[in-house]
Design a protein around this nucleic acid. Structure first.
Length: 445
RNA sequence: GCGAUCGUAGCUCAGUCGGCUAGAGCACCUGGUUGUGGUCCAGGGGGUCGCGGGUUCGAAUCCCGUCGGUCGCCCCA
């Protein structure tokens, strides 16, 4: 009803970002961006909606129920808000594949949308950092992508004790399943079953395994496979033996291990063959990053997808990458790092207050001068002339310096107070901005 | 799409076997007339008790529906 007193709410599963939440979001995004660039990735962005076909090509018609899809009023072309970035990435890469360098290293920090019911760690709108290394089939590329992921965790102050990078490999699992007697037609369904294993009961697992058509002996071996974990520093051959695969199949694991060792990442990583990723398009290394206690959903997930660019009309091109969403990451950061990362509102360099009725617009002139010198300057809007309250106002917003326009001061000068040392001195207005600037650089602020 | 649970001020909550004009703390604003950092004192703004319907003399309170939040299922990019 178009009631004039109607109260509007944000749509289900979306978030409003007030200044504190926005500061936290920017903290996450700027960390993603900085680490991506340091690791040699270039930022890209695409449209927030695409032709619906782009998403059904890869995932089939079944995906539609989980998308926000629509047509233009009066139009008949179906569109969808993007539920993931990979199709856009593949489309962008495919249309310029011939002129792009090898490898092409791209990242993006787009918003994504999905129509399902929200739950812990999964909302209808979220921001997801995407890293992709395209055109390089080597284990080094896998490791570089992992290095970037772990680089971000480290930058957030998380350690190898806080987080676990669980590594697996589609080829190795496929071999193990074949040796266990799983027929090719049942392979993808078996992957999906393993992917869901952790949240299923023993009986449910058995039951669904039977439904797929797996034999009892195969089910036992799959369970053993999914329980197999080992430190990433362990010899892959030993692990392969445990899951019934010949040691010669372990070459990809050995290469990956060697690269991870060189990048100094082994501490973070664990071989874990319960990780398969449900998606059909992964072809090699796959991984997920979890909080160490396992109490949250995956913070990040990805792997190698050597057939995907081709599927979207590009030349056959190997690629690997991952996504990291802001929702689960935010939960983990708040839980493990406390307020130091949450409170990241920028405090002003200078805060201007005035202890009398200012009829000469001096506060405005001072602000203009500070802004002109690219200082972060704010003022008090309180009407009180009580300096104690005005200083409290400056303190509350985290000001580094306070500029006091005082009737006690001679014409053309103000009091500059250092809010950390509490020292203050009289200073000419002409020299104010330069003085603040030089003191900020002297203290490294 | 399905299930459980919750919904009183910006936030955290009290009030509810149906009964005065719906409260507190925090936050916000103002004053405490020369005062230098979240203190203290006083005052103020802010709620159609999520919304709609029903029962009743009377509903924040009981019933139904709906919209949202949370948690889970399905699915997971």
């Amino acid at each position: 009803m178009a009631d004039s007193t109607r109260r509007f709410q944000a749509p289900k599963g979306t978030r409003d970002f007030y200044p504190e939440e926005m500061a936290f979001r920017r903290h996450i995004e700027s960390t993603w961006r900085a680490v991506s660039i340091e690791h040699g990735f270039d930022e890209i962005e695409g449209p927030a909606f695409e032709h619906l076909d782009l998403y059904t090509v890869k995932s089939g018609e079944g995906i539609i129920s989980e998308l926000f899809s629509f047509t233009r009023a009066g139009g008949d072309v179906p569109y969808a808000l993007r539920p993931e970035f990979t199709p856009t990435l593949a489309r962008m890469y495919a249309s310029r594949a011939n002129s792009l360098p090898v490898p092409t290293k791209w990242f993006a920090i787009p918003t994504h949308f999905r129509a399902e019911r929200p739950q812990r760690g999964r909302l209808r709108e979220h921001v997801q950092w995407n890293i992709d290394m395209i055109g390089d089939p080597s284990a080094n590329a896998d490791a570089e992508v992992l290095a970037t992921c772990i680089g971000v965790l480290d930058r957030f102050g998380l350690s190898a004790r806080d987080m676990r990078v669980r590594l697996s490999h589609r080829d190795v699992i496929t071999l193990a399943l074949q040796n266990a007697g799983v027929q090719q037609p049942a392979m993808q369904a078996t992957f999906e079953l393993i992917d869901r294993r952790e949240k299923m009961g023993q009986e449910a697992f058995q039951e669904q395994a039977m439904t797929i058509g797996l034999e009892a002996s195969a089910i036992d071996r799959i369970e053993a496979l999914a329980r197999t974990t080992a430190d990433a520093s362990e010899d892959p051959c030993t692990i392969l033996e445990a899951i019934g695969v010949g040691a010669d199949a372990g070459e990809p694991l050995r290469q990956l291990q060697a690269c991870l060792e060189a990048y100094g990442l082994l501490d973070w990583c664990t071989w874990d063959f319960s990780i398969v990723r449900g998606l059909a398009y992964y072809t090699g290394m796959v991984f997920e990053v979890h909080e160490a206690t396992g109490s949250e959903r995956a913070v990040a997930g990805g792997g190698r997808y050597d057939n995907l660019i081709e599927l979207f009309g590009g030349p056959p091109t190997p690629a690997c990458g991952f996504g990291m969403g802001d929702v689960v990451l935010g939960l983990v950061l708040k839980d493990r790092c406390g307020d130091s990362q949450v409170d990241s509102m920028p405090g002003p360099d200078a805060f201007v207050i005035c202890d009398h009725d200012d009829e000469s617009m001096l506060v405005q002139r001072i602000l203009a001068s500070l802004w002109k010198h690219r200082l972060h300057a704010r003022r008090s809007y309180k009407s009180t002339r009580n300096v104690g309250k005005l200083l409290a106002d400056a303190d509350r917003c985290g000001a580094r310096f306070t500029v006091l326009v005082s009737s006690d001061e001679p014409e053309g000068s103000v009091v500059l107070r250092d809010m950390q040392s509490k020292n203050q001195e009289s200073i000419s207005i002409d020299q104010l901005a330069g003085c603040i600037r030089s003191r900020l650089s002297a203290t490294g602020d």
